[in-house]
């Protein structure tokens, strides 16, 4: 157990738990904040764990997450805000 692994444990324990709490409550756009922060945290945790395990090839995981996490968040924002057809309590659904 070196300092890097310890940092990884702290990040995934103390950091991820609040994100999970936020992402499990409230309206979708509020949950998105939790998911987004979790993406950053997990990416950093991947980097730290790669250093801790002494396997530099594990950094690819952080690279992929760094590329995909913004894409995933943009997917959500696209469908939450950019959909004029979204019915329900928010806004007035416009007929096509």
């Amino acid at each position: 157990m070196n300092a890097w692994l310890l940092a990884g444990v702290v990040l995934s324990g103390a950091g991820l738990a609040p994100c999970m709490w936020v992402s499990a409550r409230g309206a979708p756009h509020l949950r998105l904040v939790g998911v987004n922060l979790a993406g950053t945290l997990v990416a950093v945790a991947f980097l730290v764990l790669a250093q801790g395990f002494g396997r530099s090839s594990y950094q690819d995981l952080a690279l992929v997450l760094g590329v995909l996490a913004p894409a995933g968040t943009l997917v959500f924002t696209r469908f939450l805000a950019g959909d004029p057809h979204r019915p329900g309590p928010s806004g007035t659904p416009e007929p096509e």
Partner: peptide, 11 residues
């Protein structure tokens, strides 16, 4: 959103 979170923790 919950599923995305699940995927992250699983990874």
């Amino acid at each position: 959103a919950a599923l995305a979170m699940l995927g992250l923790t699983l990874a």
